[in-house]
Each structure stands twice: as structure tokens, then as C-alpha cells.
Amino acid sequence: MAVMTTERPQMELAQFREIAITAEREEVVLEFINGRIGVKPVPDGDHGEIIMWLLERCMAQRPDLRLYPEQGLQVASYRNGLAKPDGSLAPRRTFAGQGEWADPAGVLMVVEVTSYDADANRRDRLEKPRAYAETGIPVFLLVDRDEGSVTVHSEPSHGRYESVVTLAYGHVVQLPEPVNVTLETEELKDFSR
């Protein structure tokens, strides 16, 4: 007698193939957001320059805070999600003593800088804002190199950000409370295609 199973596969074959092909081409970072495995390419030099640019501005205006690159966070409180934002702005020593996947309770802002890959739209513009809002992170900053813009998501409520403001590079961007940092974004034009 054959045993029938009703378990759903972890992923579809097409998803696995996409991951396998990407992993063969380059080193990648895997993330698990909203029940899905995601592939994030290793950042390029311009990506790193944007993170350093932001780190310098945050430290100059808010010396009480630190921008922690690539700190793993437990996200999406009602799902088993794990994400590695490009940056997590939090008070000094917030992650001391925590493991690879830290509690996001002290995080004031998460930062993502888009990569030039096919998955960026779904990952950075759709899934991560929802996961970060569900987690209650006050501000999500998206530096969108494809669009040449900066999007500030704030006021998380009921699994979404109530305020979403997008400005093209070159504008002055005010990051709201509790971050309270001003960004002059003209220089970002140097780090995008």
C-alpha cells in the first residue's frame, strides 16, 4: 500500500532553479522572508559607497546611534522571517550579545540599497517593506539605484507603512522621528547607473 503525503513542497522547481543558477554565477546571500527563500547578490562597490555615505551622515547627526551593516534580523512577527538589511540604525550596543539573527526591538530604521538583479523589485520594493512594517520598525529607507530615488517608509501600522515618500536623487530628504536625520542626496548620483 502506497503512503500518500499532503505536505506542500518547500518551494517550486522554478524557484529552486533560479536560486541554483544565481548561486552558480556569483556569491549570494540567502534570506527567508514571508515564508520564501530569497537570493540577494553580494553588494558591489557602489552599493558599499552608498552604505558608507549614509553611515557618515547618521554618525555626524546622531552620534548616539550606529548603522550596523548586514545585521541579521528576525522580521515579520507573525511569520518565521529572517532578513539581512543592508543597514540597521540602532542605539550603540543594541546587538551586543545577540547571535546572527537579532531581535529588532531597538532598531529605529532599516536600509536597503537595490541591487541590479531581477529579484530586486519583489524583494526590496514589496516584500521587505511589508516584513519591516509588520515587525514595527519605525522607518524603512530604500535607496533605489534603478529609479535614482530615495523612498522613506514610516508610520508602521497593521502590517504596512502609512507614510511613503519618494524623492529623486538631488533632493533633501528628512528622515522622520525617531531617526531625525537630514540627507542631501545629490552625491548618490555618482553611485548609480
Score class of each variant (00 low, 15 high):
Gly99Tyr: 11
Pro104Val: 14
Thr5Glu: 12
Leu141Ala: 02
Val113Ile: 11
Leu82Asn: 15
Thr22Gly: 14
Val39Tyr: 04
Gly136Lys: 01
Tyr132Ser: 04
Pro41Arg: 06
Thr6Asn: 14
Ala2Arg: 11
Gly136Asp: 05
Val110Ala: 15
His158Asn: 07
Lys84Asn: 12
Ser149Ala: 13
Ala133Met: 08
Gln174Val: 00
Arg145Val: 02
Glu70Trp: 13
Met109Val: 01
Asn34Pro: 03
Arg145Trp: 04
Glu24Tyr: 12
Asp124Thr: 04
Tyr161Met: 01
Glu187Phe: 02
Met59Tyr: 10
Val28Phe: 06
Tyr68Ala: 14
Glu7Tyr: 11
Val3Gly: 08
Glu177Leu: 07
Pro156Glu: 05
Trp53Pro: 02
Pro104Leu: 15
Leu54Arg: 05
His171Tyr: 11
Ala14Tyr: 11
Ser88Ile: 02
Gly35Pro: 00
Ala118Cys: 07
Gly106Leu: 09
Val179Gln: 06
Pro129Cys: 00
His158Thr: 04
Leu142His: 04
Glu187Lys: 02
Val107Tyr: 02
Ser192His: 08
Phe191Glu: 00
Trp101Phe: 15
Asp124Pro: 04
Ser154Asn: 02
Arg66Ser: 12
Phe16Cys: 07
Ile33Ser: 03
Trp53Lys: 05
Gln71Tyr: 12
Leu54Ile: 09
Leu183Ile: 08
Gln61Asp: 07
Leu89Val: 13
Glu112Tyr: 05
Val28Leu: 09
Gly106Val: 09
